[in-house]
Amino acid sequence: MLKSLLSDDLPKSRWLALLLVAILIGLAVAPFLFPGAKSLNVAARICVFIVLAASFDLLLGYTGIVSFAHTMFFGIGAYGVAIALTRMGPGWDAVAVGVGAGLVLAIALAVLIGLFSLRLRTIFFAMITLAVASAFAILASQLSDLTGGEDGLNYRLPVALRPSFKLFEGFNGRLLDYYIVFFVSLALLLGMLRIVNSPFGSVLMAIRENPFRAEAIGYRTVVYRTLASCIAAAAAALAGALLALWSAQASPDTTLSFDIMVDILLMVVIGGMGTMYGAVVGAVLLVLAQNYLQALLGDRWLLWLGLAFILCVYFFPTGIVGRLRRR
């Protein structure tokens, strides 16, 4: 049961298993264990960023693609929901339309970028995605009629997700919202775990190891890479939609900025590339650091994480997860 849920990709380390179980339980009972608006917000952001980082790991760790446009898809998902809720009013139909539109746009853009530039070399692709992402961020802040510009959008959530809504005693709309975020994130993570452990995932890794050989064996590398980017883009867009559904606001700073891209990179590399679980560990670490380390280390925490990032790339390419597995 557990094995099939995890697609046979077990943590393979007692400490890692313990850590993951602790994270799972912690997030599952977070509203009761750590009451308070701030900690609930942190827990929800952890869930969202786990999905976002895992979808990036699908690209970086499993397919060997460096894309700096991942936040763009995240932003598309968030803005999809935000714009729909702003325009259509706070109903579930608006959420459905927003999620659907975000997904379609994200996948279409991923196909476009993929077909246009995935046959190029890694470096070219990274540069082009960086340029496209920054243009998109500017576009979003320029189209202020639609997106609210630099300030972004603030909108009302569906009634059932508001604090005033009581599902039953002691369980209000915010809790319902949190558990939607939690379970959808969990499902997405397990889904991605399944994908990387499927035959499709093995082809991706074969391409990462040696694209020429994979092509020679008969795999159309561009098609596989484009498919992988589409899946990653869709997952990132869904993560964005979850964030929009949680925070009731979307702005360039919180969804599209290069800072978010840096966060994702840090999460995946420090947690461990090509492991999926690394994205989980990295996201937990980084979101906690952002919210609590700031008080401890002051503004320098990003400096230390940056150094840790460089050391990881040099010495521990499989990050924390790799270290734990080696014991």
């Binding site: 970086l60 060997g64 460096v66 070399r121 890694t122 470096i123 990274a126 840096v262 990179l265 840090l266 590399v269 503004d299 320098r300 990003l302 400096l303 994480l305 940056g306 150094l307 990032f309 460089i310 790339v313 040099y314 390419p317």
Partner: peptide, 25 residues
Amino acid sequence: VYGQHLKQILVTTGGLIVAEQLLKV
């Protein structure tokens, strides 16, 4: 990281992160 493009991109981006933070310091 000569000749390893993926690591090169990652490490030099890491260098950018650290450098930006040092500027702030």
